[in-house]
Design a protein around this nucleic acid. Structure first.
Lengths: 82, 82
DNA sequence: GTTGACCGGGATAGGAATACCGGTATTGTT
DNA sequence: AACAATACCGGTATTCCTATCCCGGTCAAC
Protein backbone atom coordinates (compact mmCIF):
# COMPACT_ATOMS: atom_id res chain seq x y z
CA UNK A 1 0.00 0.00 0.00
CA UNK A 2 2.54 2.40 -1.08
CA UNK A 3 1.96 4.55 -4.07
CA UNK A 4 5.54 5.63 -4.35
CA UNK A 5 6.16 9.33 -4.98
CA UNK A 6 6.48 10.41 -8.58
CA UNK A 7 9.91 9.84 -10.05
CA UNK A 8 11.98 12.54 -11.68
CA UNK A 9 11.23 10.96 -15.06
CA UNK A 10 7.52 11.15 -14.46
CA UNK A 11 7.78 14.80 -13.56
CA UNK A 12 9.81 15.51 -16.67
CA UNK A 13 7.24 13.67 -18.73
CA UNK A 14 4.60 15.91 -17.23
CA UNK A 15 6.61 18.99 -18.09
CA UNK A 16 6.93 17.84 -21.67
CA UNK A 17 3.22 17.26 -21.88
CA UNK A 18 2.61 20.73 -20.52
CA UNK A 19 4.97 22.30 -23.04
CA UNK A 20 3.24 20.50 -25.89
CA UNK A 21 -0.15 21.74 -24.79
CA UNK A 22 1.23 25.22 -24.36
CA UNK A 23 2.66 25.13 -27.84
CA UNK A 24 -0.57 23.82 -29.33
CA UNK A 25 -2.46 26.68 -27.71
CA UNK A 26 -0.46 29.16 -29.77
CA UNK A 27 -1.72 32.73 -29.50
CA UNK A 28 -5.03 31.81 -27.91
CA UNK A 29 -5.57 32.72 -24.30
CA UNK A 30 -5.72 30.18 -21.49
CA UNK A 31 -9.13 31.51 -20.58
CA UNK A 32 -10.51 30.83 -24.03
CA UNK A 33 -9.13 27.32 -24.38
CA UNK A 34 -10.09 26.36 -20.86
CA UNK A 35 -13.63 27.55 -21.40
CA UNK A 36 -13.95 25.62 -24.62
CA UNK A 37 -12.59 22.49 -22.98
CA UNK A 38 -14.82 23.08 -19.97
CA UNK A 39 -11.84 22.88 -17.68
CA UNK A 40 -11.10 25.49 -15.01
CA UNK A 41 -8.30 27.84 -16.01
CA UNK A 42 -6.42 27.02 -12.85
CA UNK A 43 -6.28 23.42 -13.90
CA UNK A 44 -5.03 24.26 -17.37
CA UNK A 45 -2.37 26.49 -15.91
CA UNK A 46 -1.09 23.79 -13.59
CA UNK A 47 -0.95 21.25 -16.37
CA UNK A 48 0.80 23.56 -18.82
CA UNK A 49 3.34 24.55 -16.22
CA UNK A 50 4.01 20.92 -15.35
CA UNK A 51 2.95 21.37 -11.77
CA UNK A 52 0.45 18.57 -12.29
CA UNK A 53 2.65 15.95 -13.94
CA UNK A 54 0.07 13.17 -14.22
CA UNK A 55 -3.27 14.77 -15.07
CA UNK A 56 -6.43 12.77 -15.54
CA UNK A 57 -7.13 11.15 -18.87
CA UNK A 58 -10.38 12.95 -19.53
CA UNK A 59 -8.90 16.30 -18.62
CA UNK A 60 -6.16 15.91 -21.21
CA UNK A 61 -8.68 14.57 -23.70
CA UNK A 62 -10.89 17.63 -23.26
CA UNK A 63 -7.94 19.98 -23.70
CA UNK A 64 -6.68 18.13 -26.75
CA UNK A 65 -10.17 18.38 -28.20
CA UNK A 66 -10.32 22.10 -27.66
CA UNK A 67 -6.85 22.49 -29.13
CA UNK A 68 -7.59 20.30 -32.11
CA UNK A 69 -4.69 17.96 -31.51
CA UNK A 70 -4.51 14.19 -31.34
CA UNK A 71 -3.98 12.32 -28.11
CA UNK A 72 -2.02 9.67 -29.94
CA UNK A 73 0.27 12.32 -31.39
CA UNK A 74 0.72 13.73 -27.93
CA UNK A 75 1.89 10.37 -26.64
CA UNK A 76 4.00 9.71 -29.70
CA UNK A 77 5.85 13.00 -29.40
CA UNK A 78 6.18 12.25 -25.75
CA UNK A 79 8.13 9.11 -26.58
CA UNK A 80 10.19 10.74 -29.31
CA UNK A 81 11.14 13.62 -27.08
CA UNK A 82 11.62 11.49 -24.02
CA UNK B 1 -11.57 25.24 -2.92
CA UNK B 2 -13.67 22.30 -3.27
CA UNK B 3 -12.99 19.61 -5.79
CA UNK B 4 -16.54 18.45 -5.90
CA UNK B 5 -17.14 14.69 -5.74
CA UNK B 6 -17.41 12.88 -9.03
CA UNK B 7 -20.80 13.13 -10.65
CA UNK B 8 -22.84 10.16 -11.75
CA UNK B 9 -22.03 11.01 -15.36
CA UNK B 10 -18.33 10.97 -14.66
CA UNK B 11 -18.61 7.58 -13.04
CA UNK B 12 -20.58 6.26 -15.97
CA UNK B 13 -17.98 7.62 -18.33
CA UNK B 14 -15.37 5.73 -16.37
CA UNK B 15 -17.38 2.56 -16.62
CA UNK B 16 -17.65 2.95 -20.37
CA UNK B 17 -13.92 3.47 -20.62
CA UNK B 18 -13.35 0.35 -18.58
CA UNK B 19 -15.67 -1.68 -20.75
CA UNK B 20 -13.89 -0.51 -23.89
CA UNK B 21 -10.52 -1.49 -22.50
CA UNK B 22 -11.93 -4.82 -21.40
CA UNK B 23 -13.30 -5.44 -24.85
CA UNK B 24 -10.03 -4.47 -26.50
CA UNK B 25 -8.18 -6.95 -24.32
CA UNK B 26 -10.15 -9.77 -25.87
CA UNK B 27 -8.92 -13.24 -24.86
CA UNK B 28 -5.64 -12.02 -23.44
CA UNK B 29 -5.16 -12.19 -19.69
CA UNK B 30 -5.05 -9.13 -17.46
CA UNK B 31 -1.68 -10.24 -16.23
CA UNK B 32 -0.23 -10.29 -19.70
CA UNK B 33 -1.58 -6.93 -20.79
CA UNK B 34 -0.69 -5.26 -17.52
CA UNK B 35 2.85 -6.54 -17.72
CA UNK B 36 3.24 -5.30 -21.26
CA UNK B 37 1.87 -1.89 -20.32
CA UNK B 38 4.03 -1.87 -17.21
CA UNK B 39 1.01 -1.22 -15.06
CA UNK B 40 0.19 -3.25 -11.93
CA UNK B 41 -2.59 -5.74 -12.51
CA UNK B 42 -4.55 -4.32 -9.64
CA UNK B 43 -4.62 -0.96 -11.38
CA UNK B 44 -5.80 -2.49 -14.64
CA UNK B 45 -8.52 -4.38 -12.85
CA UNK B 46 -9.81 -1.28 -11.10
CA UNK B 47 -9.87 0.66 -14.33
CA UNK B 48 -11.58 -2.08 -16.33
CA UNK B 49 -14.20 -2.51 -13.64
CA UNK B 50 -14.84 1.22 -13.54
CA UNK B 51 -13.89 1.47 -9.92
CA UNK B 52 -11.34 4.08 -10.90
CA UNK B 53 -13.47 6.35 -13.09
CA UNK B 54 -10.87 9.00 -13.84
CA UNK B 55 -7.53 7.28 -14.31
CA UNK B 56 -4.34 9.14 -15.15
CA UNK B 57 -3.60 10.05 -18.73
CA UNK B 58 -0.34 8.16 -18.97
CA UNK B 59 -1.84 5.06 -17.41
CA UNK B 60 -4.54 4.91 -20.06
CA UNK B 61 -1.98 5.71 -22.74
CA UNK B 62 0.21 2.80 -21.63
CA UNK B 63 -2.75 0.41 -21.64
CA UNK B 64 -3.94 1.60 -25.04
CA UNK B 65 -0.42 1.07 -26.32
CA UNK B 66 -0.30 -2.48 -25.02
CA UNK B 67 -3.74 -3.14 -26.47
CA UNK B 68 -2.93 -1.62 -29.82
CA UNK B 69 -5.85 0.79 -29.77
CA UNK B 70 -6.01 4.51 -30.38
CA UNK B 71 -6.60 7.00 -27.60
CA UNK B 72 -8.52 9.22 -29.96
CA UNK B 73 -10.78 6.34 -30.90
CA UNK B 74 -11.30 5.65 -27.22
CA UNK B 75 -12.50 9.21 -26.66
CA UNK B 76 -14.55 9.23 -29.84
CA UNK B 77 -16.41 6.07 -28.89
CA UNK B 78 -16.80 7.56 -25.47
CA UNK B 79 -18.73 10.46 -26.96
CA UNK B 80 -20.74 8.29 -29.32
CA UNK B 81 -21.75 5.92 -26.58
CA UNK B 82 -22.25 8.64 -24.05
C1' DG C 1 -6.60 -30.49 -5.55
C1' DT C 2 -3.53 -27.23 -7.40
C1' DT C 3 -2.88 -23.64 -10.63
C1' DG C 4 -4.46 -19.58 -13.08
C1' DA C 5 -7.65 -15.83 -13.84
C1' DC C 6 -10.82 -12.78 -12.04
C1' DC C 7 -13.42 -10.36 -8.27
C1' DG C 8 -14.41 -7.29 -4.17
C1' DG C 9 -13.05 -5.18 0.10
C1' DG C 10 -9.84 -2.69 2.91
C1' DA C 11 -5.87 0.15 3.87
C1' DT C 12 -2.72 4.06 2.95
C1' DA C 13 0.38 7.54 0.92
C1' DG C 14 0.68 10.77 -2.32
C1' DG C 15 -1.29 13.58 -5.68
C1' DA C 16 -5.15 15.94 -8.76
C1' DA C 17 -8.70 19.31 -9.01
C1' DT C 18 -10.25 23.41 -7.57
C1' DA C 19 -10.47 28.10 -5.48
C1' DC C 20 -8.40 32.34 -3.72
C1' DC C 21 -4.79 35.83 -3.23
C1' DG C 22 -1.22 38.94 -4.49
C1' DG C 23 2.08 40.12 -7.96
C1' DT C 24 3.89 41.42 -12.70
C1' DA C 25 3.64 42.82 -17.44
C1' DT C 26 1.24 44.51 -21.34
C1' DT C 27 -2.11 47.07 -23.68
C1' DG C 28 -5.34 50.36 -24.17
C1' DT C 29 -7.98 54.54 -22.31
C1' DT C 30 -8.83 58.92 -20.47
C1' DA D 1 0.71 60.34 -16.45
C1' DA D 2 -2.66 57.75 -14.17
C1' DC D 3 -5.86 54.10 -14.69
C1' DA D 4 -8.28 49.86 -15.83
C1' DA D 5 -8.52 45.52 -18.08
C1' DT D 6 -6.39 41.29 -19.55
C1' DA D 7 -3.18 37.52 -19.30
C1' DC D 8 -0.11 34.96 -16.81
C1' DC D 9 2.44 33.34 -12.64
C1' DG D 10 3.56 31.30 -7.89
C1' DG D 11 1.96 30.11 -3.50
C1' DT D 12 -1.50 28.21 -0.23
C1' DA D 13 -5.39 25.48 1.34
C1' DT D 14 -8.78 21.73 1.19
C1' DT D 15 -11.36 17.83 -0.48
C1' DC D 16 -11.61 13.95 -2.98
C1' DC D 17 -9.44 10.49 -5.62
C1' DT D 18 -5.79 7.43 -7.68
C1' DA D 19 -2.18 4.05 -7.46
C1' DT D 20 -0.69 0.46 -5.13
C1' DC D 21 -0.62 -3.42 -2.00
C1' DC D 22 -2.72 -7.31 0.64
C1' DC D 23 -6.12 -10.90 1.47
C1' DG D 24 -9.81 -14.07 0.91
C1' DG D 25 -13.10 -15.93 -2.16
C1' DT D 26 -14.99 -18.06 -6.59
C1' DC D 27 -14.83 -20.62 -10.80
C1' DA D 28 -12.87 -23.24 -14.41
C1' DA D 29 -9.50 -26.27 -16.28
C1' DC D 30 -6.30 -29.51 -16.09
Amino acid sequence: MVRPPLTAQERERGERLGRMLREARGPRSMTEVAAEARVPVETLRKIESGRVPTPAFFTVAALAGALGISLDALVADQILTG
